[in-house]
């Protein structure tokens, strides 16, 4: 038998059967490529769906009214569409959040990367990750049930729903993001720079403040801007703890009082979505116009962060 086989086969070079593997290679390439393009399709889809409905909205409500009205009352009989009411409220809660998250976040990052002994660090980092993983609805519960009563006891005139408690808790919610991105930036500063500083006779703090932090500045500022984008887009905490009360823009600036209830862009979208607004109604279009504004704002912040990180990055070998 075996002799037979050997004779019948022509004496030629062995050729591998490549057809199947070439085909599977091609199929995998196309399929996975399509998956990768899905992320671009998502962006395109977001922009398209926002623009389509926003255009419909601006056919009904003139753009100038959207920008310059002093009140936000789209659900009233005589509606006004001053989007800056929502933007100011959003920026106010975000600013309160950042005034908590930036100092605490950067200091935590410094402690974790420069001071913490390795054993402690192994415990602290997962703890911060758990804090980052707490759902925002839980933070909202905490703000409303735990923090607001404390604030009411300490500060006179704090309402049940208020921007202050929402902002403070939101600061804690975005702290892990600021801390971990800042820590990455600090970690990227080479050890030799620190040693150079010590050799010049600096103390540890002086080395951190004058050498390490300036070296990591671009990353840290990028982290803070991303934190701002997160705070602007945060939804459940402000919806639960800050209420649904759009304040008219008055010259006496009473709409910037953090003790009272406000309405941010995100909590407006939630308010309307809960009410089951019928498709093609003006309410339905309004949430897309507000969503468009929110998207533009976060996109600008993101581009800012990206630009800053690239422009001011210190390059080390």
């Amino acid at each position: 038998m075996s002799e037979n086989l050997a004779v019948s086969r022509p004496v030629s070079r062995w050729k591998p059967q490549r057809k199947l593997s070439q085909w599977s290679e091609r199929i995998v390439y196309c399929l996975f490529g399509a998956f990768a393009l899905l992320s671009i399709a998502t962006t395109a889809g977001i922009i398209a769906s926002l623009i389509v409905e926003a255009i419909e909205f601006f056919k009904v409500v003139p753009f100038t009214q959207f920008l310059f009205d002093r009140e936000w009352t789209p659900l009233f009989a005589n509606p006004q569409y001053g989007v800056f009411v929502l933007i100011f409220a959003t920026l106010m809660t975000a600013t309160i959040a950042l005034s908590v998250a930036i100092p605490l976040g950067i200091l935590s990052a410094i402690y974790l990367s420069e001071y913490a002994p390795p054993r402690l660090r192994r415990w602290l980092k997962p703890a911060l990750e758990i804090l980052a993983g707490i759902p925002s609805v839980v933070h909202g519960y905490f703000a409303l049930i735990f923090v607001t009563p404390i604030l009411q006891a300490l500060i006179p005139g704090v309402e049940v729903f208020n921007a202050l408690s929402a902002g403070l808790v939101m600061g804690i919610a975005i702290l892990p993001l600021v801390a971990s991105l800042s820590e990455d930036a600090i970690f990227a500063v080479p050890q030799s720079l620190r040693q150079g500083a010590y050799a010049l006779g600096t103390t540890r703090r002086e080395a951190i403040q004058n050498v390490v932090l300036p070296g990591a500045l671009s990353g840290i500022v990028g982290a803070c801007i991303l934190g701002m984008a997160r705070a602007v887009g945060e939804t459940m905490i402000v919806t639960i703890a800050a209420g649904q009360n759009p304040r008219p823009i008055n010259p006496d600036l009473s709409f910037l009082d953090p003790r009272i209830s406000v309405q941010t862009m995100t909590s407006f979208i939630v308010q309307v979505s809960q009410g089951d607004a019928p498709v093609n109604s003006i309410e339905y279009k309004t949430i897309f116009a507000v969503g468009m504004t929110l998207f533009t704002l976060t996109l600008l912040l993101n581009i800012c962060s990206f630009w800053f990180v690239n422009r001011f990055r210190e390059k080390y070998e």
């Binding site: 998502t42 977001i46 997160r230 939630v270």
Partner: peptide, 28 residues
């Protein structure tokens, strides 16, 4: 080039608020 484009795009998507995804999903 494609990979770089997608990378930038993913960076942007990560910063998009989740409620915006909700609006996209509502529409699509």
């Amino acid at each position: 080039r494609l990979a770089q484009l997608i990378e930038i795009n993913i960076g942007n998507l990560a910063a998009v608020p989740s409620i915006i995804y909700g609006l996209l999903a509502l529409q699509v």
